[in-house]
């Protein structure tokens, strides 16, 4: 078995416009967990978390369970134990995590995401779109968001968000 070198999806320095910062976040492990029929409570107990309702995130310490679709959640920050009553798929390295935080974060995402993100509290999440890219959006509270998208689309996502940040800053500069 050769030794593989772990590389970040982008390896770019954080991008800041008008106090709002886009950065790549570490995403060591992401596991898709689809409970077998009627087993979501048992899955939650086995993970030490509650299986989330639609558009919700449950967390305990570093571990988070993010709702990601009908009978599907993504486990972050923790390895899935053996023998869960669920279909478990390791999706590590298939996704990239970006963080966007600052006073303009909501306005930047308003240009790309077809959801009203104002006042979206921590503990909420949404499976939606970032322009044309699939997106799992996690609200961190206080105008901060974690954005998960496919790793193969990381550069496109970075470009889209960076452009929205730039245009918003340009527009703000025009306003006296």
């Amino acid at each position: 078995m050769p030794d593989l070198i772990a590389k970040p999806a982008l390896g770019l320095p954080p991008l800041t416009h008008a106090g709002t910062t886009l950065a790549e976040a570490a995403l060591p492990q992401i596991t898709a967990i689809a409970p077998f029929p009627g087993q979501s409570a048992a899955v939650g107990t086995a993970l030490g978390l509650t299986f989330p309702a639609p558009n919700c995130v449950t967390e305990a310490g570093e571990a988070r369970l993010v709702w990601a679709g009908r009978d599907l959640a993504f486990l972050l920050g923790k390895a899935a134990p053996e023998g869960l009553p669920a279909a478990v798929t390791d999706q590590s390295d298939g996704w990239v995590a970006l963080t966007l935080s600052g006073p303009q974060a909501v306005q930047v995402l308003a240009r790309l995401v077809p959801l009203d993100l104002r006042d979206m509290p921590r503990g909420q999440a949404a499976r939606t779109a970032l322009n044309h890219l699939p997106l799992v959006l996690i609200a961190e509270g206080e105008g901060a968001f974690t954005l998960l998208t496919f790793r193969s689309m990381a550069r496109t996502a970075w470009h889209e968000i960076g452009e929205a940040m730039e245009k918003l800053a340009a527009r703000a500069a025009l306003t006296p």
Binding site: P35, S40, V43, P52, A53, P54, R70, D71
Partner: peptide, 10 residues
């Protein structure tokens, strides 16, 4: 297919 087969809570 119905709202859910596995349930879930907030």
């Amino acid at each position: 297919g119905g709202d859910s087969t596995a349930g879930g809570v907030a």
